[in-house]
Amino acid sequence: MIDSRTAPYAILMLRVTLGLLFLAHAGLKVFVFTPAGTAQFFASLGLPAALAYLTIALETLGGLALIAGFFARVAALVLIPVLLGAIIMVHAAAGFFFTNPNGGWEFLALWIVGLAAVVLAGDGALAVRPTFNSKATA
């Protein structure tokens, strides 16, 4: 049974944690690899270089939306394909475990499950924009 008193706070914790992870990864692409370096890496994978800039923008805006609880379900849903792309294009060849050379895909899979939980459960507590509810409130 789900405790309706504490469940919204569990989603808040998940939302904020996922948002911070996305901001950290966007920051890595901006401040460590640089946007140009990230674009060059994407091109080396056979992807359009411009996709790197879109990825940085999605990670940044999606991370902020998750933290704030602003359309968190939508943000989580939009971010899932970013992680699927990272698994398919970068991490799948390295195997499952993140400790493998070049990192595996287990962490990204867990991250996807967390995003899916936000999609299914809603925005949680302290959201800027709460989840739409089918019940009318007076």
Results as ranks from 00 to 15, higher is better:
A76Q: 09
I88P: 00
A117I: 13
A43M: 01
G104N: 07
F31G: 15
R129H: 02
A50K: 06
I11V: 15
A36Q: 14
L14Y: 01
A24H: 10
P35L: 01
V32K: 12
L58Q: 04
G27K: 01
L64I: 15
L28T: 08
L20K: 05
R73T: 10
L120H: 10
W111N: 12
L64K: 03
R5D: 13
T99G: 05
I80F: 01
K29Y: 04
L120W: 11
L66F: 08
V16S: 05
L58E: 04
S44C: 01
A109S: 14
Y9N: 02
F31D: 02
F22I: 02
A109L: 15
R15E: 07
R15L: 05
N102P: 02
P48H: 11
A43K: 10
L110A: 15
F41Y: 14
F42T: 04
I112C: 14
A127K: 09
V128N: 00
W111S: 09
L23P: 06
A49R: 12
S134T: 12
S4V: 11
A75L: 10
L120Y: 11
H25W: 02
Q40S: 13
A75M: 09
Y9E: 05
L47M: 15
M1G: 14
V90D: 03
A127C: 10
T131V: 09
F71K: 14
F107K: 01
T17E: 00
L20F: 13
L20V: 15
M13W: 06
